[in-house]
């Protein structure tokens, strides 16, 4: 797992931090999903995103252009996933 711990900046961790909260609600490992950033149109695995988790929610940003690609907010009995910063979410089909 990569992070910027120790840097003189807001802390981020990599997109693997999203595996727990998203897997819990969607029942699949989303870190192998790929997201296309709406800012720079680059496609990367979710695990490659930078996640700012010291915040009221999880904020995933594109490591290329820095734009927000996903926000995850957990409230009572519900998890909200805001994907307006992403153009495409692609998922591998599970092998039977």
């Amino acid at each position: 797992m990569s992070t910027n711990i120790g840097a003189d900046d807001a802390l981020w961790v990599d997109g693997n931090a999203l595996a727990g909260p998203l897997g819990e609600i969607m029942g699949t490992d989303l870190t192998v999903a790929e997201l296309t950033c709406a800012g720079c149109r680059t496609t990367r695995p979710l695990a490659a995103m930078r996640v700012f988790d010291r915040a009221p929610g999880l904020v995933a940003r594109c490591p290329g252009c820095g734009e927000v690609v996903m926000r995850v907010v957990r409230m009572a009995g519900r998890v909200l996933v805001d994907l307006r910063g992403s153009l495409v979410l692609s998922l591998p089909v599970p092998v039977a």
Partner: peptide
């Protein structure tokens, strides 16, 4: 004084 941030400073 906790620091919360949704992105780089």
């Amino acid at each position: 004084f906790p620091v919360l941030s949704a992105g780089p400073t």
